[in-house]
Design a protein around this nucleic acid. Structure first.
Length: 568
RNA sequence: GGCCCCAUCGUCUAGAGGCCUAGGACAUCGGAUUUUCAGUCCGAGUACUGGGGUUCGAAUCCCCAUGGGGUCACCA
């Protein structure tokens, strides 16, 4: 269930979000014991409105995870819904060699889906740079500030000693918190240690006599007892900074108002909130959205278990499809691109509208009945309040149904544009298709109609694009409908003669012709239709037979029938 | 294990104490339409984790239990 503690429940529209305006934020609300200190600083308790700014901070991993995309989408939606700003910031503190290359697929995914960012790589912005690796000076300054104000301290304890402490705590079944030996040092001792070059880390000093609470936009009130929290390292002994710290500095510096991220970060939040407080930052609103679980699983979907996913019955079809289609396109197979990657869907010819619709409905709903929504619809109606708390399973079937819906909405011309690249890449249509090629493709797509779910499905209708001599007959139906059906040969020959002369050669006329044919021969329609279908398309299933004949035209139909006859 | 989060059909969800005999969608299963496949139309089955409270009344509020998950780094 939701509702209750949502202090910034939408009152509709573009109003800037009021931060901390509700009594929920009033200090002392969580003071169950006298000891508990007030939790919110003046800055966050005073009524203050800031324009909404949300962010997504991907690491350059070389691909865009579908679950990450959903998280990004929600952050983007909130920014767009409120008329705010959406920021992309690269978490590259790992300093990988080729950040740009590893970022490519990520930008590509955003661009494909049409999720534009207002600030970040490529577009810049007033809080540059947007790469964490280039922002060390800011982290450095923040560390210094905390050191000066006594909210952080240099810890000279060697890692082995800490490990020992931890082991002991574990043995005694105590919750481990670091021992603050370095805090006991006199100024002289500390100075001496530093002068001798003794390595140290900087730890943030947790106020252990407090509790820390947040009012999460989806989870409501969540609070932690600081006495159980170790002082987190914020700067390593080599002078680099930890994510948990850098992200706080960045969020504050970039004036992020709403931190919309996956639920797994909830556990990081008390430390981050505490650091925000210590830095005297306005407290952002946190919104921890549920993560997406793999189909048939309760665990979050990750690329680490792709092999497990491969065997899941729900996902098997998607993997198989990749293995069928990608090799034809020369882009590997399901090992190169799999269904946890956004690019998988792009390359297969899914529609942004389909993916976006499916992703929006995972952990969010407009009401009890609305399923199909355009991105604009979702932007208009998106509120944090309606985000569901429980984890949601990714359902490929449902995605398929969204995809199908949006594909059916598409005008023929757009379908042609979408299918053409697949036909060109597989050599079924020339690189520079002329009007004739295009209209032929259009006729096929029109006949394929709603059998076309994703653009690459057009590759299932190769028979209309290959030369008559190189079309293959599927063995099973050929056997069943032509060889094993005693009357097939005679009927096929007879209908061939009629097809040779009928005019015009269009679906309606052919339909009538075949029906008349069955009547005058006293046969059932099934007796001729199946044989004829296999003869001209090589397959037992596909577009309507009369459409198929009309697309092929008289000459090609006759050639194909002749060829089938000769192989019976 | 500590801390934290979560819990309605197989799945995504609706549900703000009486509109609930629990609604919608996907999937499934029937039936109809049809030249195949797909589609479309009609119909069916399937859920409030359990136990205690509060209340005239609980899916909804409270407590406990159970189950699931996340997180516990000089990772991000």
């Amino acid at each position: 269930m939701r509702r209750k503690s949502l202090n910034f429940r939408e009152k509709g529209g573009q109003a800037p979000t009021r931060l901390g305006a509700s009594p929920r934020f009033s200090a002392g609300r969580f003071s169950t014991a006298g000891r508990v200190t007030r939790l919110y600083l003046k800055k966050s308790t005073c009524s203050m409105t800031r324009p909404v700014r949300t962010r997504f901070a991907p690491s350059p991993t070389g691909y865009m995870h579908i679950g990450g995309m959903r998280t990004a989408l929600f952050a983007w939606l909130w920014a767009r819904h409120t008329g705010g700003t959406f920021i992309l910031r690269v978490d590259d503190t790992d300093q990988e060699r080729n950040v740009e290359a590893a970022l490519g697929p990520i930008f590509r995914a955003f661009e494909w889906l049409g999720l534009t960012w207002d600030e970040g790589p490529k577009v810049g912005g007033s809080f540059e740079p947007y790469y964490q690796s280039q922002r060390s000076h800011l982290y450095r300054a923040a560390v210094d500030q905390l050191l000066v104000t006594g909210r952080a301290f240099k810890d000279f304890d060697p890692p082995e000693l800490i490990a020992e402490d931890r082991k002991q705590a574990e043995a005694a079944k105590r919750t481990w918190v670091n021992v603050r030996r370095s805090l006991e040092l006199s100024d002289d001792e500390r100075k001496r240690l530093e002068e001798t070059g003794r390595p140290f880390v900087v730890r943030f000093l947790i106020p252990r006599d407090q509790k820390i609470a947040i009012d999460d936009a989806v989870r409501g009130h969540v609070e932690w007892d600081c006495s159980l929290m170790p002082d987190p390292v914020i700067m390593r002994s080599n002078g680099s900074f930890l994510y948990n710290f850098a992200t706080v500095v960045d969020d504050a510096q970039m004036e992020i108002t709403h931190i919309i991220r996956a639920e797994e970060h909830l556990a990081n939040t008390p430390v981050q909130a505490l650091i925000h407080k210590a830095l005297d930052n306005p407290m952002p609103v946190f919104a921890h959205i549920p993560f997406i679980t793999a189909p048939g699983s309760t665990k979050k979907m990750s690329k680490r278990d792709v092999d497990k996913l491969r065997n899941s019955p729900q996902l098997k079809k998607l993997f198989d499809r990749a293995d069928e289609v990608f090799p034809q396109l020369g882009i590997g197979d399901s090992k190169t691109l799999n269904p946890v990657m956004v690019e998988y869907y792009e390359r297969l010819g899914y529609l942004p509208a389909g993916i976006l619709n499916a992703l929006s409905r995972l952990g969010w709903s407009l009401d009890g009945t609305t399923e199909f929504m355009s991105l604009d619809d979702v932007v208009k109606n998106f509120t944090l309040e309606r985000i569901v708390k429980a984890a949601a399973g990714f359902d490929p079937e449902k995605l398929q149904s969204f995809q199908q819906h949006w594909m059916n909405q598409l005008p023929l011309e757009d379908k042609i544009v979408g299918c053409l690249p697949f036909l060109i890449k597989t050599g079924l249509v020339p690189d520079q298709p002329d009007d004739e090629d295009r209209s032929n493709v259009g006729r096929v797509i029109a006949a394929v109609a709603d059998r076309l779910r994703v653009f690459s499905d057009i590759l299932d209708y190769k028979e209309f694009f290959v030369a008559d001599e190189s079309m293959t007959f599927d063995q099973k139906p050929f056997q069943q409908r032509l060889r094993d059906a005693p009357e097939a040969r005679g009927l096929l020959t007879a209908i061939r003669d009629q097809l040779a002369t009928v005019t015009p050669y269009d679906a309606t006329t052919l339909d009538k012709l075949v029906h008349d044919f069955t009547e005058s021969n006293g046969i059932k329609i099934g007796q001729i239709v199946h044989a004829l279908r296999v003869a001209v398309t090589g397959k037992s299933a596909g577009v309507g037979l009369f459409d198929a004949l009309a697309i092929l035209g008289r000459d090609r139909s006759l050639v194909r029938i002749e060829r089938a006859l000769s192989q019976i």
